[in-house]
Design a protein around this nucleic acid. Structure first.
Length: 585
RNA sequence: CGGGGCGUGGCGCAGCCUGGUAGCGCACUUGCAUGGGGUGCAAGGGGUCGGAAGUUCAAAUCUUCUCGCCCCGACCA
């Protein structure tokens, strides 16, 4: 490909109000342009990178035995109503009506459609297992799109769905996908961690996320260096490190006035106590009725863990208006002592496991404008074993559940997610099959997703330097670029063309920069685009029959005879790729 | 959804406070020179200031409304 034939509007200056480096580079490299919030054009070179990621994904999916299909972006409401997700999904699900006033939505995911597809044609265990995947556009009307392709509203996703006769067979599909994902992300040159997304006690289902480690990642993950345990902070189970607790300052139970102190911060300030000596009560609404989470004032609640512990389908914070229907007590004065009496309709009260039994705490008194101090956990209020759960969000300093070592917290970009679904969708949608003894059973499903654009951008985020992108050859927009010191010089030009043809014959994806610009400008663009190998043809080298060659990730360039170039590139690329596959975090 | 910010040639910005119908850099066009890290000089083209209404003799500038985009936060009581 010749540069003059490509629409690649590179930018010299940084675009305004763009925070993340990879997003900035995508814009500067002329790979993407914004159309609306969270909606982008992919320009030729941006698309080229995306296609290369897709090619790797396809290859590994096919190798793992999945078959490619293509399902629609527009889904009829009926399918989503069958699983209840038409109602339970919020505004993220973009709904609209067609000319006949029928309800539709833009697909944020495809469990309903693929389950419908399978149930129409699969009757027997003999037809199973099946694993179908697609690389397709999704639309999720995100509250707050940001960071370019990282969190767009319209985005490309690879999603696979497996259908099996039983759990055991399902686990094989799950493991095959897991292995494929590890290969895919390694081949894309990504430093990633596979983390637990669910601790695995709900209906035997299991889920793991693939996190690319990056400071700018939107997700937090805990990692245990000593045993390797990794999990999404929201879903991680961790133990309290007792050494983080302040010394007890109360000796006896006492009722104190706190007329204007509603938040933990305010109470702590007024009563001169340490946050680790306070307890707070968070109220939520569920389909079973209001529920309460009791946890230390300095800890955050993991809503996901809370919901799981409650085994609730829906969970949202209780509004002040709702609270007023149940109780005279207002937010800010609610505490664990006599909670059930204060709010008689509470369905469940769960205590966080970081509450220390016997320790004296400062708590809301369930009387407006009053707190108790010196309340003993487990004595002044009961904490039955079945009520105590790990519902706090993991924090730095917490201890590993498995080996008791201190955990570290890292940031990551979620590029892939694999999930054992069980029979949730197959049961809701009657996706059944006849097994060997003539019994009808729901299929056991799994789903597996990769954000294609996000994977590409994560690779950029991890690889960049001051000059631009540093991409692995497998996903760089070009493998090789040829720059000519003076394009109009016929001797140099013909040498460059010769080199260009040779490399193409050897199967390389080559860019010939045929623009009549200063060398400096051309080199800047080559670096910005992250092209893996750069060759410079000029008089200086040609006098000695040499070409300047440089790999994007190396500091120094080398002078090589033209007939050595192909082998040199080959071994350079192989070394790099090998490094990715064996990279250790 | 709450808070904050921004919207002026393709891009990045100044002008707005203290109204008098637009300016800079980059990019673009033409010419000459240059050619190993965004080359120099010269001559050009392009915007009515997100939109609407209002105040005024006069609005990019003041007021109100509206649209769009970006950032932060989001029920932690």
């Amino acid at each position: 490909m010749k540069y003059s034939n490509i629409h690649c509007p590179t930018l010299k200056e940084d675009p305004a109000s763009v925070e993340v480096a990879s997003h900035r580079l995508l814009l500067r490299a002329g790979m993407i342009r914004q159309v609306a919030s969270g909606i982008y054009d992919l320009l030729p070179l941006g698309l080229k990178v995306i296609r290369k990621v897709e090619a790797i994904v396809r290859e590994e999916m096919n190798r793992a035995g999945a078959q490619e299909v293509l399902m629609p972006l527009v889904h009829p409401a009926e399918l989503w109503q069958e699983t209840g997700r038409w109602e339970s999904n919020g505004k993220e699900l973009l709904r609209f009506r067609d000319r006949h006033d029928r309800d539709f939505c833009l697909a944020p995911t495809h469990e309903e459609v693929v389950t419908d597809l399978i149930r129409k044609d699969v009757r027997s265990y003999k037809q199973l297992p099946i694993n179908l995947y697609q690389i397709q556009t999704k639309f999720r009307d995100e509250v707050r799109p940001r960071f370019g392709l990282m969190r767009g509203r319209e985005f490309t996703m690879k999603d696979a769905y497996s259908f099996d006769c039983d759990e055991e067979s399902q686990m094989k599909a799950y493991e095959a996908m897991k292995a494929a994902y590890e290969r895919i992300f390694s081949r894309c040159g990504l430093g990633f961690r596979r983390v637990h997304a669910d601790s695995g006690n709900i209906g035997g289902s299991r889920s793991e996320e693939f996190m690319v480690l990056a400071k700018t990642g939107e997700d937090e993950i805990v990692h245990c260096k000593s045993c390797g345990y990794s999990a999404n902070t929201e879903k991680a189970r961790t133990l309290l490190n007792p050494s983080t607790l302040a010394k007890e300052s109360f000796e006896s139970l006492e009722l104190v006035d706190t007329p204007d102190q509603k938040t933990i911060d305010e109470v702590v300030k007024k009563l001169q106590v340490h946050p680790t000596e306070t307890l707070k009560v968070l109220l939520y609404q569920t389909e079973k009725g209001p529920v309460a989470a009791v946890l230390p004032g300095h800890r955050d609640l993991s809503e996901i863990a809370f919901q799981r512990a409650l085994q609730a389908q829906n969970l949202r914070p209780l509004s002040p208006e709702e609270l007023a229907q149940y109780s005279q007590v207002q937010f800010g004065s609610i505490g664990p002592m006599g909670l059930k009496e204060a709010i008689p309709v509470l369905a469940d009260i769960l205590f966080d496991s970081t509450i220390v039994e016997g320790r004296r705490y400062c708590v809301g008194a369930n009387q407006n404008g009053k707190h108790y101090v010196g309340v003993q956990a487990g004595i002044d209020f009961a904490m039955q074993a079945h009520q105590v759960h790990q519902i706090h969000k993991a924090e730095v300093g917490d201890l590993c559940c498995d080996c008791n070592a201190p955990l570290q917290i890292e940031r990551g970009i979620e590029v892939g997610h694999i999930f054992a679904l069980g029979t949730k969708y197959s049961e809701a949608m009657n996706c059944n099959f006849m097994d060997e003894d003539g019994k009808e059973k729901p299929m056991v499903m799994g789903c597996y997703g990769i954000g294609i654009g996000r994977t590409a951008q994560a690779a950029i985020e991890q690889g960049l330097d001051e000059q631009g992108m540093v991409l692995p050859p497998a996903i760089a927009p070009f493998e090789v670029v040829i720059d000519v010191v003076k394009w109009k010089d016929e001797v140099l030009q013909s040498k460059a063309l010769e080199l260009y043809e040779t490399l193409r014959e050897h199967g390389y994806d080559v860019l010939l920069d045929d623009r009549d610009q200063s060398l400096g400008a051309k080199l800047k663009d080559a670096d910005l685009l992250g092209i893996s190998c750069r060759l410079v043809v000029g008089h200086k080298g040609l006098e000695n029959n040499q070409i300047e060659a440089k790999l994007r990730w190396e500091k120094e360039a080398q002078w090589l005879a033209p007939d050595k170039i192909v082998d040199w590139i080959k071994s350079g690329f192989e070394k790099k790729q090998q490094a990715f596959l064996t990279a250790d975090l």
